[in-house]
Each structure stands twice: as structure tokens, then as C-alpha cells.
Amino acid sequence: MVAAGSRSTSEHSLGRRVRAVAHSMWRMRWMYLLMTPTLIYLLVFKYIPLWNAQIAFKDFKPLLGVTGSPWVGFEHFQTFVNSFYFSQLLTNTIFFSLAKLLLGLPVAIICALALHETVLRRYRTFVQTVIYLPHFLSWVIMFGVLLSILSPGDGLLNQIIERLGGQPIAFMTSPKYFRWVVVFSDIWKETGWSTILYLAALLAINPELYEAAAVDGANAIQRIWHISLPGIVPVIVLVTLLRMGHILEAGFNQIFVLYSVPVYSVGDILDTWVYRQGLLQFKFSLATAVGFFKGVIGLILILVANRVAKRVAQQGLF
């Protein structure tokens, strides 16, 4: 009796909850209506590609279509992993990501510290304005700017080398130098912008800490070492983790513009290879398999990075 009674009240409350939700959904009906076009857009332009990605496991024939093509399982993945390109592409991709991170991070931190320390306020704003700018320019423009420095004929660097009695170097097409052109041009373009986060963290440090340090007679270096740097460690950890999560994104737009046939062996990354195999050689399934492989690894890495960030820096990425 008692049990039956409590069940009926729980059913009753369940019914009430459903009705309450239904009521609030009705109340918010305009909100859903408002979001519908965007959700349809997402369905078409983000989720249909996801459906199309099944050709990674098929032998895609344009005439048969995505659904009509025969399944081949993991054949394309095996082809790729066993191919001679696999290690080369992975090496280049990870090299670019790590070199940009490891060499760019200290530069960005030092720039942020210098901007934070300077007493010349107007000059600081001016420097900030200038060093953020390259972030907003496309890699095509950067290509033109790089040519003015690196081209064997009129490039400033080559003019200097020649004046010092050396031979001009074709930096952009030399397998020996190309990787460093990629790494340093990226650092040149993005370091300024990446100081924003560190600068924000530096400005958030309690000013009393600096005052106390001044009373204790700490000099500038001690102040930076014992207050500023520890203050921005969480941001450094967070940025590093996020970049590790994106380690397979080595900068497609940049490399697509800068590379050329002579430097494929040292410049080719997963994304550029996918583009050439898929859209220039029409190996749709193989290229999709590699893109899918990259997507899955990327998803796992970013989820792990997020988990680690929550544990270490007490702050998730999303």
C-alpha cells in the first residue's frame, strides 16, 4: 500500500516535471526558432561532411557516390601507415609544431615581460600596436614580405650576405633552410599577438607583491624571477597544453603558400599531403582516411590536454 502510494506520487511528480519542462520549452519557443537556421547550417556544413567521411573506409568512386561505394575497412589506413610518406609527414608535422612552440614561447614571454616592465607607457602602446599587426595579415602577404628579406636577388638578408663577401642563398627553395624559414616566419608573425595572454596575466598580479618586494630591496631581475614569472606559470601551462592538443596542426596556410617542389621532403605536412593526394591526384578515399586519422588523433589529444589542464592549472580549455 505504502509502496504503491509512493510510486503514484513519484509518477505524479515525474508527470509534473515533464509538464514543467514542456511549459518552459513553450515559453522559450522563439528562442528555438531563432536558433533553427544556425542549427540547420551546422547540420549541413559540419555534419554532412562527417557523414561523407565514411569514404575513408570505402573505395570511393564519384559515380557511385558516398553511400554507393563499396566498403574496404581499414585498407587505406594500412596503405598510409605502411607507406614511405608516413614517417616523413609525421616527422615534419610534429617538427614544425614543436619548434614553433618551444622557440616561440620564450620569445613571447620575454617580450611580455619587457612590455610589462617598461616605464614608457606611450612607447609600450606603440610597440604593442606594431607587433600585434602581423597576426592580422594573410600568409600571402607574409610571403611577399618574406621575399623582400630572403629572395636571392633583392632580399635584404642576401644583400647583407653579399656585402660581407658571401654567396646569396635561396632560403625559400633550399631544403637546408626551408624548415627554419617556416619556423621563424611563424614566430615573427604570431609572437606579438601571443604576448596578449601573458600581458593580461601579468597585469592581474597583485601590485602589493611588487610593493613588498621593493621594500625588501629586490632588484628588477629578482622581481621578475620571484613574482612575475610565477604569476604567469598557469597561463604558460595552459597555452602549452592547448598547443600540444593541436600538435598535428602545423600551419597549412603558411606551408601551402611558402613551399615548392624542391622542399617537399622537409616541408610537406599531413594537411598539404592530404590536399595533393585528394584534390590533385584524386585519391579521395586515401586522402580522407589520412584526414580522418588526423581528426581522431586531434580529438583525443585535445580531450587529454583539457583533462590535464583542469588538473594542473585548475582551469579547462573549454
Partner: peptide, 11 residues
């Protein structure tokens, strides 16, 4: 999750 270039191209 980014399924890559080709699936979008097909769309």
C-alpha cells in the same frame, strides 16, 4: 573534431 578537407569538398 575536424573530418578534414575532402569531406567538405565533396559537400
Amino acid at each position: 573534431f575536424n573530418p578534414g578537407l575532402i569531406p567538405v569538398y565533396l559537400l
